[in-house]
Design a protein around this nucleic acid. Structure first.
Lengths: 131, 131, 131, 131
DNA sequence: GTGGTCTAGACCACC
DNA sequence: GTGGTCTAGACCACG
């Protein structure tokens, strides 16, 4: 698992990291139960303040992506969907609209977009349907 | 064309507006050559600071979505795909990844996602394929 | 709205404050749309670090209790229930069990408990049923 | 009597256990005079550090829920309401307020709450009223 | 003016 | 050792 930050970016470091971690979990690069580097370790590695890493871990814990065991470390949590179908649908729609908008402005065709999605879908780890 | 701002949102007003305008163009609700309200008009209508609207128009002009003709007003620009295929592909991939990541964490299945995209694609105005 | 902190308590200051604010909203002492003191104001008043107050506001925003408008301040948000019926029920059950357990250990009778609840219910502002 | 620990939870293990034991006594699942497993036994069973169990028993003894008889083991104590009515009322009020606050934020109605309490009350073992 | 981010460094609780 | 909290103080974005 390699994380990269761009200190020059407009998006704050802690957000860059939460996004990368969220994506890594969604891609199955980080698996349920897996342990993440400790706050101090990661802070040292990325040369940022430990508080910044702590914030990343805290936010992802509140989202239900990670969980913390005091004295042991931070781990990838069990996936869970606590939100109403309606809310989940709304949230996804937003990101979908942004994706479509970008695609149009970049000059892609409808066919290309569908095909890209069909390809992309394979690289993520979807919930098992029998759950 | 109706624009709505949500003062409760975390995303700043100027970004809410640029996003909506970009999306409106992508959906074909605003067509090439169409004239937008003046800075003052729109600022009055939405009850926001004219500086905010000016910033919106400036950013969209920089992006190539709008263009300003001095003394005449602000217009929807000609679509132009001047970027290399590679860069366009990279940019789209980013938004696609965000979409997929969100979908996984919200507990959607791969099939649902593909189906949503197939539906969504119909609501946007894609460039003519013979271009 | 008066907030009090006990720096000697085991529960961290930011939690003391989030609990008090959450309760004030639930009791209707803080109404939807009402503005809270600014981060610096409240920090000065309570003699704590502004970061601590910022944390309180941030957490309550993520919970959907407050919302922030950059440059304007922090406000009580519209109530909203985004969670699954099942999850909401589970969470409430936990607090209910804790309440019952405490009541038994303190030597209250079943009748007293029910009566206390019937009284207490009147002091909170419940969602309008026609919603 | 089965105890379960959730290592993923934010609340420390020793608190999870004290809560469960307190609740078990309140529900009548553990009766006055009943003997609990020894520190070593329980630690082995739950695969936790014996220090953690010792802490649990110590805290519950301090609360008056358990008592230790040297060389014999740990037992469920006689219920005792030695606190003044006023103090007991205050303590209960705190938990009741937390319960109500949670209920409001989770979107329950006043009727639902009262009904839940009326149901829940049946599952606990209240002191005989002629006491 | 408002809130948001980040750093540096201290102290505490848990295991 | 682990993470959690708090302070002090700096700098930036928003309106």
């Amino acid at each position: 698992m390699e994380l990269r930050i761009n200190p020059a970016s407009r998006t704050p470091i802690y957000r860059q990291l939460t996004e990368q971690l969220r994506e890594a979990v969604a891609r199955g690069k980080l698996r349920t139960g897996e342990r993440l580097p400790s706050v101090r370790e990661l802070a040292g590695e990325l040369v940022v303040n430990p508080n910044t890493i702590a914030r990343v871990y805290t936010e992802l814990e509140r989202e239900g992506v990670l969980n913390t065991r005091a004295g042991l470390g931070v781990f990838v949590a069990q996936p869970q969907a606590e939100l109403t179908r309606r809310v989940r649908r709304q949230r996804l729609q937003k990101v979908l609209d942004r994706f479509m908008t970008e695609a149009v402005h970049l000059g892609f065709s409808a066919e290309e977009v569908v095909s890209l999605v069909e390809q992309g879908v394979k690289e993520f780890s979807w919930p098992s349907t029998d759950q």
